[in-house]
């Protein structure tokens, strides 16, 4: 049995580049470490059959074999999640649909599709016990679905703007959601009641008076594995909304008190934090992309800035961490899925 590599983010290096062609918009990693799934802007060649792919990581199937996942969306697949047992992929799209797929099927097709939201589904997450799926969207709703049969478990109402992201607390006791204006709510899934307004990450929202439009929202959200912190990523200090002139920001909340801590980047320039994950070695990983290019950032929970960053060859748009936490996958605007190792 091989010894696990020593994690050292400063040694991050690319181990795989899968050239898909069309710009990528979402990705997630199979808990059984067989696949990385990704969503892409569609092409004119395959209609709606080229929105979602499953990339095999098993050498027997070829290191870079990707097969299309077919059959339910007719718009971009923005949100992806895989159940903890690795059996089921759940997706959400701009078309308001949430779909279930048998992940390992040789020709994966949707086994169930719900009209889950009116408008864009911005996030889907499977509960830690694998028994429920939470989704959120532009209809200002968060909803919880029974994983086994797709029935609605709870409808979480109370947000006053588009709900940009959702996450399960690691102990499975609650769902937390965050909207365009940074309003963070904790929900009791059993009753559908809002337990508390955790905080408002006001730094992640602005109304641009010149362009007369809102900009912001929780573009990424993740719990620390022990549930003690919630990190939310987005854009801040916006001076020109329509050119995306603003800085990537991560707001880390103490889960119990809701007290925020702001973590900026000393490297990444203009952009948005599009991905967040807690690494068991004791640091956060962030993905930034925008006018300043794409960056993978690493920062400690007690620091105000990142301690290391890697410039990507294109804007990063989505990120996932391998189940053994030795690699991360990044979906890029140049149509490439890149996998990086976090060790020498």
């Amino acid at each position: 049995m091989s010894t696990p590599p020593t994690i050292d983010p400063t040694k991050i290096h690319e181990v795989l580049a899968h050239k898909h062609g069309r710009p990528l918009i979402s990705c997630c990693w199979d808990p059984q470490d067989r696949y990385v799934c990704f969503g892409a802007e569609n092409s004119s060649a395959a209609g709606y059959d080229d929105l979602l792919y499953r990339l095999s990581l098993a050498p027997a199937e070829g290191a870079a074999a990707a097969v299309p996942v077919l059959g339910s969306h007719d718009s971009w697949v923005w949100a992806l999640a895989i159940a903890p047992d690795g059996e089921t992929l759940v997706t959400g799209g701009y078309d308001g649909r949430v779909s279930w797929y048998p992940l390992a099927h040789p020709e994966p097709r949707a086994s169930r599709t719900l009209h889950a939201h009116d408008g864009w589904v911005r996030a889907v997450r499977v509960s830690p016990d694998g028994r429920a799926v939470a989704s959120c969207g532009n209809d200002r709703l968060a909803r919880v679905w029974n994983m086994a049969d797709g029935s609605e478990v709870a409808r979480l109402t109370g947000h006053e703007s588009h709900v940009y992201n959702i996450a399960w607390h690691p102990d499975g006791s609650a769902v937390v959601s965050c909207d365009l204006k940074g309003v963070i709510k904790e929900w009791d899934v059993a009753t559908g009641a809002c337990r508390r307004d955790v905080a408002t990450a006001a730094q992640l929202w602005a109304y641009d008076k010149q362009f007369r439009a809102d900009i912001g929202g929780a573009r990424a959200m993740a719990f620390r594995s022990d549930g003690s912190q919630l990190a939310i990523g987005g854009i801040t200090k916006v001076t020109n909304a329509f050119a995306g002139i603003g800085q990537p920001l991560v707001v880390v909340l103490d889960w119990a008190s809701g007290e925020p801590k702001l973590i900026e980047s000393k490297n990444s320039g203009n952009g948005v934090t599009w991905g967040l994950a807690w690494h068991p070695a004791g640091f956060w990983i962030g993905l930034a992309g925008g006018g300043g290019g794409g960056w993978i950032r690493f920062f400690k929970p007690d620091a105000a800035e990142d301690f290391h960053a890697l410039k990507l060859p294109a804007n990063g748009r989505a990120m996932a961490v391998a189940p053994d936490a030795t690699r991360i996958a990044v979906g890029l605007a140049d149509g490439t899925l890149r996998i990086y190792a976090l060790h020498a």
């Binding site: 007369r212 439009a213 809102d214 329509f242 050119a243």
Partner: peptide, 15 residues
Amino acid sequence: SNYDTHYENFDFHIE
């Protein structure tokens, strides 16, 4: 105003 959406065209056109 305004539709000059060099960034996040889709979010801004929704609004």
